[in-house]
Write a protein that binds this DNA or RNA. Structure first.
Lengths: 192, 192, 192, 192
DNA sequence: TATGAATGAGTCTTCATTCAT
DNA sequence: GATGAATGAAGACTCATTCAT
């Protein structure tokens, strides 16, 4: 009976560590999640974690890299497009989808900014956000339009989590969030 | 010269603890800030902190209570007004000002959500935000208008910090953020 | 209304400290009772305790001295009597009464022996017990009779506390304990 | 020479912790024995203790469980016997032996009652003593006979430690204590 | 692929005590 | 007859990390 479970666990320990770690990081925060806790949940020893990852931070880095590759790709694609309104709207649309695919990670990033800032992924993430901003808004745009863009990005990032206690279908909510963000970017593009 | 310092330190240690704690909490996060660090900065012993505050969390609670009283008052005021568009705009305007007066604390709340959620102030803050939301938007409004309101609140909370690397006068930035938030609330009020 | 209380508290703080301390020491043990706790119960500051007593241990010493004076006197009296059976029985009877008059302290001594042993009163108490033993039993008596005497003393000391969960009038219990102890001493006196 | 020591230390650290802890607990009391002290004696770090035991209390619990199993068994056996005088005497005899096998622990329990009462083992121990009492004496017996039984138990528990400064062979002393306890139980059984 | 055993640095917190006022 | 403010030492406990096996 346990045989199947044991079998299945062969070879995918690394993946299971990532899964549990992400869940706990997102739930409790990075600092409050200890390697002991992760190990206990998986029924392995702490030392086993160190076979798969060099440090605690490395677990997070691996999650970040694995889960945000689509976003990295999206942004790189965006930089090579003409910065038309259509492109911007397309970017926002695809960004919204990408976020939905890695929701727990982004919830984590959102809720642990102080911690993330000190970590390796903090730098990477920040720089990525700046590249995204530079696609969505011209550096010479009016201040208020910059704010609109930043607001759109924030809405995308945080919208979902904050709406958790609002009733309604998650996909409907995502669409609503997307629409508001698109509006903001559109207004920003057209200037006051 | 030390004489004056010593003199001045008489009786205001509690305040000085709060000041240093807020700075460190906002800078490094709650968990990464140890009481040892706070004490060292003040050149007192850890035990001295415990003379003034019962626990580490109490320091944070005291900061929260001292600094967010105007906001609590504002929200209570708002609940007693008719929920007209004008009221909503007034609330947003005054909220923006109140936030500016406690910027470091709000930066802290924003960047340490995972931590704050487990703390006593997390509950209080969340409940306050819900009250604010209920002033800004009708519970029966369209989903998208709810999102607009939430987006407005987020814009106010996070706008300033995210714009830190954008050049420009802080007060100008605040005005821009306020304008975007006001727009969102206004759109939300008028429905699609 | 508080005036009377305040009035009454004038000048008897020392006594009140002793009362509260004894209660807490007996209830929770010496180490687990902090001066903070005592002070809080009395609604004074810790420093006030130090006005009346030089150290924590001194509070205990004062309790011991105040409450065990009758016992000290009793033992001194006993030493000057002829060591007849009648004397021994009389000693036991009066010891039982003396104990009842300082029950909380003796409960404390009984339940905190490890602690008391390291304290100043430990030595005094032990030496007193040896003097009592030497009254109750001849140094050349059979081993078993010595045990009987020690057992009698223990019965007196611990009997009451252990019988707390037995129903019945406290004074009846004391009488029963006294009778058993007297029996033991009598048997010891008469030898096998 | 250190080689052998090192060798020997492999794998029996848990046991060594228990040994040292029991010695120190019995000697100085529970509260006055710090984990630092235990660790230093063993030449390991405090953290090593926490690898083997979850808390300080757990060390004590493990000692209690390991050392009092025979007593638990004895009492369970006793409950299933008819409560005749012979059974009672047999119980007392075997209890005396069991105590001798765990003398330091019982000395500890005896001398740290206030502390033990607040600990997990306090409950267990108290309940065990009540079961023993219920074997030795009928709940409807005269008060004085109840006292005799309690006195017998106390004599067994405390007798040995108190006789430490009396000269004589330890086994002789144990026998004498046993005899006094047996007498008391016998008298109690036969009623006044 | 893991585990068992351990470490060193650090955490928050509590305590008895002191002393100027 | 007390308080306010502080200290130094110590407490139990947790953590990320290491390494021989």
């Amino acid at each position: 009976m346990d045989g199947t479970n044991q079998q299945r666990r062969r070879g995918d320990t690394r993946q299971r560590i990532q899964d549990v770690a992400l869940e706990l990081f997102a739930d409790q925060g990075y600092e409050k999640t200890s390697l002991r806790e992760i190990a206990e949940r998986l029924d392995v020893t702490k030392a086993a974690l160190y076979y798969h990852f060099k440090t605690k931070e490395e677990i997070l880095v691996s999650l970040f890299e694995d889960l945000t590759r689509p976003i990295e790709d999206l942004i790189e694609w965006g930089r090579q497009q003409p910065h038309t309104l259509a492109t911007k709207q397309e970017i926002v649309r695809r960004y919204s989808e990408a976020l939905a695919g890695a929701a727990p990670l982004f919830r984590f990033m959102q809720e642990n900014q102080a911690t993330v800032r000190e970590l390796r992924i903090g730098e990477v993430f920040k720089e990525r956000m700046l590249r995204l901003r530079d696609i969505l808004i011209d550096p010479d745009a009016e201040l208020i339009d910059k704010v609109r863009c930043v607001s759109a990005m924030f809405t995308l990032h945080a919208g979902m989590f904050v709406l958790q206690d609002v009733e309604g279908d998650p996909e409907d909510k995502r669409k609503a969030v997307l629409e508001v963000a698109t509006d903001l970017v559109t207004q920003a593009h057209q200037g006051a």
